Simulated assay, not measured.
Amino acid sequence: MQTFIYKSLRKPDTYLYLRKRDDFAVLPEAVRAPLGDLVFVMELALTEERKLARADAAVVRLNLATHGFHLQFPPTVLDPMVDG
């Protein structure tokens, strides 16, 4: 699964993963607005073998398949996209 990763300029260490490049329409406005401007960082093949530094790749893939996006928050912030 390909994913496209963007960095929030308003929220430090917050990243948005999208299933389709520049498909910001999948984001609810309540999610999109607080992120502010987003800068494209990289395209990544998110395979089952892929390890991510600060996110569970299986959770990211599930969120991409289900919602079309995944948010990665700084380590000190609780991640609402992960069941608790």
Results as ranks from 00 to 15, higher is better:
residue 75 P to R: 08
residue 17 Y to K: 09
residue 7 K to I: 00
residue 28 P to L: 02
residue 5 I to H: 14
residue 25 A to L: 01
residue 46 L to M: 13
residue 29 E to D: 09
residue 6 Y to H: 03
residue 44 L to P: 11
residue 33 A to L: 15
residue 11 K to Y: 09
residue 52 L to P: 02
residue 9 L to M: 00
residue 34 P to D: 13
residue 41 V to L: 14
residue 27 L to W: 01
residue 69 F to I: 06
residue 76 T to V: 08
residue 58 A to M: 05
residue 73 F to Y: 11
residue 53 A to W: 07
residue 26 V to C: 05
residue 48 E to R: 12
residue 23 D to W: 07
residue 14 T to V: 07
residue 68 G to R: 02
residue 45 A to P: 12
residue 29 E to N: 06
residue 63 N to A: 02
residue 20 K to C: 08
residue 64 L to F: 00
residue 14 T to W: 12
residue 46 L to Y: 13
residue 66 T to C: 01
residue 15 Y to N: 05
residue 44 L to K: 15
residue 17 Y to D: 00
residue 27 L to D: 02
residue 30 A to C: 10
residue 54 R to H: 10
residue 58 A to S: 12
residue 62 L to Y: 10
residue 47 T to E: 13
residue 58 A to K: 13
residue 23 D to S: 12
residue 21 R to K: 12
residue 9 L to D: 00
residue 16 L to P: 01
residue 38 L to P: 06
residue 36 G to M: 15
residue 17 Y to F: 10
residue 9 L to E: 03
residue 43 E to T: 15
residue 42 M to D: 14
residue 12 P to H: 07
residue 68 G to F: 02
residue 57 A to F: 00
residue 14 T to L: 10
residue 47 T to D: 11
residue 21 R to L: 11
residue 64 L to V: 04
residue 37 D to C: 07
residue 11 K to T: 14
residue 72 Q to M: 15
residue 45 A to W: 11
residue 57 A to G: 10
residue 20 K to R: 13
residue 20 K to I: 03
residue 32 R to A: 15
residue 7 K to C: 02
residue 50 R to V: 06
residue 33 A to N: 14
residue 74 P to M: 12
residue 41 V to P: 07
residue 22 D to P: 08
residue 16 L to Y: 00
residue 39 V to T: 13
residue 73 F to N: 08
residue 24 F to I: 04
residue 35 L to F: 12
residue 8 S to V: 05
residue 5 I to R: 15
residue 36 G to N: 15
residue 45 A to C: 11
residue 8 S to N: 08
residue 53 A to I: 06
residue 56 D to Y: 04
residue 22 D to T: 07
residue 57 A to N: 08
residue 55 A to E: 02
residue 22 D to R: 08
residue 59 V to Q: 12
residue 19 R to S: 15
residue 19 R to V: 11
residue 57 A to L: 01
residue 73 F to P: 08
residue 70 H to Y: 09
residue 26 V to H: 05
residue 8 S to I: 05
residue 72 Q to W: 03
residue 40 F to K: 11
residue 26 V to F: 02
residue 22 D to G: 02
residue 13 D to Q: 14
residue 34 P to S: 12
residue 14 T to A: 06
residue 67 H to P: 00
residue 23 D to G: 11
residue 47 T to R: 13
residue 7 K to L: 04
residue 66 T to Q: 00
residue 14 T to M: 05
residue 25 A to T: 10
residue 13 D to A: 09
residue 67 H to W: 03
residue 70 H to I: 01
residue 77 V to C: 00
residue 66 T to I: 01
residue 65 A to C: 05
residue 9 L to Q: 01
residue 57 A to S: 14
residue 14 T to N: 05
residue 8 S to F: 09
residue 33 A to Y: 13
